[in-house]
Design a protein around this nucleic acid. Structure first.
Lengths: 340, 340
DNA sequence: CGCAAATTTTAAAGCGCTTTGGGTTGCCCA
DNA sequence: TGGGCAACCCAAAGCGCTTTAAAATTTGCG
């Protein structure tokens, strides 16, 4: 059943039927009712391919996930983000086009999307310093929204959390407890968020005249094994840390395993703070939060990012939207005063 | 730049240009070369909306993710699956349309997809018994592939792992080690895979004249907190288990936390086996596998499912494709003989 | 009651591509 | 010389919708 047939069955023109269906005012309410009833009865749904061609809008938003060898670290986080964004897209009538590209092809993917018009806008996640994607998307004149930010963060729209402040806060909390050997297990160094977190960590130290210890800093994809191996090595090495700061719950879980292996009790023998994206399957709150954590729901971020991007798409002339979310520190069972 | 302009610039008809670009034989190689060069120079890419309308193919595959209150458990698993599938789609020129729907609307979502022709086929994950989606998709005549299976598993295409065998194997392994109080922390009971795993577990017991202990069986969304809370309760309860069987690494991590809280060492005081989907950020293999596990890469499953689905789309008359993957048991550090 | 204005409906022109069904051209061979 | 056959190329007809411009109908009002 297509529009033509439906119109014929109703003895109306395609124009009128189309207008009735799309809520245009120039059709009598009685006619509209008739049309809607017939459409429903016939299970008519406009062909989206034709509609997209006719309107010139794709009603689709693209998420491009680069698959580098290692940065699939994005997974646990990107999934929840995706779900948040997807909820909003569904509500607003947008489709979500997910594109997996091998790392070097990100450029090509964006150009392709822009050239063949299969999306109205794209979401950019986890920017690195001076991320080339931003310049490219500006050049392509494709609406986009960055989750995170980079560089001077001017001239484009983004939503980010206050990483510096969060990690400064977390570090202060540990310093206040008397810890001085605090390890930082961070994400890969080229990500902007990792740099900001390091900055917060460093600032907290410097404010007290302390210097972070280089042997306690590590960057890598945020996997459980990174947490486990690095914590193990640090704990077994000289000048072991008495506290860990981890950029993700997943890393913290690895740290916890390393601690357990050594018979160390979290919160007593060893302190751990992590950044908690509030992943749905890693709820940190059951029976009181397990990990002391800086928290910010990545899913909520996905939702808000989607809203902002849609806003941008609908109002192309809008100046950049920028939102900085503050992050709170939840004290859990994984921290305690520095032993001895 | 569109086809018309490109053709005009080349002094050729749209037909010829289109054919040259799409590799049809009835165009001279010299002409084709000219066309390709011009297209490249002009950064021409055919408008996908127009192409889809003209060909009648969407070149898109749909994944519909139901967002029930709790089954967002799917997350960690669906993300890796998605990545695997996405790799194949990209290679084969298909787009991936991701649709988040609130649980009751799954039907509507599928009907919509079918009616407005925005996808050529859909992927179905985590079927429940007698999953209504399967009947619906048959009725809608939309190609689909099920990851998992249900019911008699005839009459439609699927890829599944040998859940019964895997869990029977794992249970036997624990029984062989002398464990008799083996807890099973399974996924939600309505999922087909959970039922099969329970079956494997039960069969292993019955083969030795043992009966599974009801108080050691639990079903829920596969989160860390489910593992933690349930294991905690069981360990503190009467007749505590000496071994756990978990349907996911995430659950096992929760169990490990419960064990650590009680000063129990895995592999010595308590044994744990889990099913490992080989999630990229939860590598179980660093420095020897942490958990003894039945393993099967969910990402590889995603890849294969995508290939099968595309095959189905391209050859609509093909009889159902069905693949059952065997699962191997990797012995790690989390299991040992029953203490005492 | 009649005419202009407002309301409702329509025919037809795209949107940018693919594809059908012919045309041309050039070459070979009788 | 010309008929037949490839090899190339093209005009035009869709694909199913939206939207413009105009026609038909109804309404308002002196």
């Amino acid at each position: 059943m297509n529009l033509k047939e439906l119109a014929a069955a109703l003895n109306l023109s395609q124009t009128t039927v189309s207008r009735a269906l799309n809520g245009y005012p120039e059709v009598r309410e009685e006619t509209r009712a008739r049309v809607l009833a017939a459409a429903k009865a016939a299970h008519y749904a406009p062909n989206s391919r034709a509609r997209r061609l006719a309107t010139g809008r794709a009603m689709t938003i693209g998420h491009v996930i680069p698959l580098t060898g290692r940065a699939e670290m994005v997974n646990p986080i990107f999934a929840d983000f995706l779900i948040g964004a997807g909820e909003v897209y569904a509500r607003e009538g947008y489709d979500l086009l997910l594109s997996m590209v091998t790392d070097g092809d990100t450029d090509k993917a964006f150009r392709q999307l822009a050239a063949n018009g299969s999306v109205d806008g794209v979401m950019v996640q986890a920017p690195q310093d001076n991320d080339p994607r931003i310049a490219l998307l500006k050049e392509l004149d494709l609406p986009f929204l960055v989750h995170g930010r980079t560089g001077d963060a001017k001239g484009y729209s983004w939503l980010d959390i206050a990483n510096i402040r969060a990690f400064r806060r977390a570090t202060d909390f540990l310093l206040d407890l008397g810890h001085t050997r605090i390890a930082l297990l961070n994400g890969q160094a080229n990500f902007d968020f990792a740099q900001r977190r390091l900055k917060g960590y460093t600032e907290a130290h410097e404010a007290r005249g302390l210097a972070p210890l280089p042997h306690l800093l590590a960057n890598d994809a945020m996997t459980e094994s990174f947490g486990y191996l690095t914590a193990s090595a640090m704990l077994d090495g000289p000048e072991p840390p008495t506290a860990f700061l981890a950029s993700s719950v997943i890393i913290a879980i690895g740290i916890r395993r390393a601690a357990a292996d050594r018979g160390l009790r979290l919160g007593r023998d060893l302190s751990v703070i992590c950044h908690d994206d509030e992943l749905s399957y890693l709820n940190n709150d059951v029976g009181g939060p397990a990990f002391t954590a800086t928290r910010s729901s990545i899913r909520a971020a996905g939702r808000r990012c989607a809203e902002m991007l849609i806003d941008l798409i609908r109002n192309p002339e809008r100046p950049p939207l920028q939102e900085l979310w503050d992050v709170d520190l939840t004290v859990g069972q994984s921290t305690g005063p520095c032993p001895r």
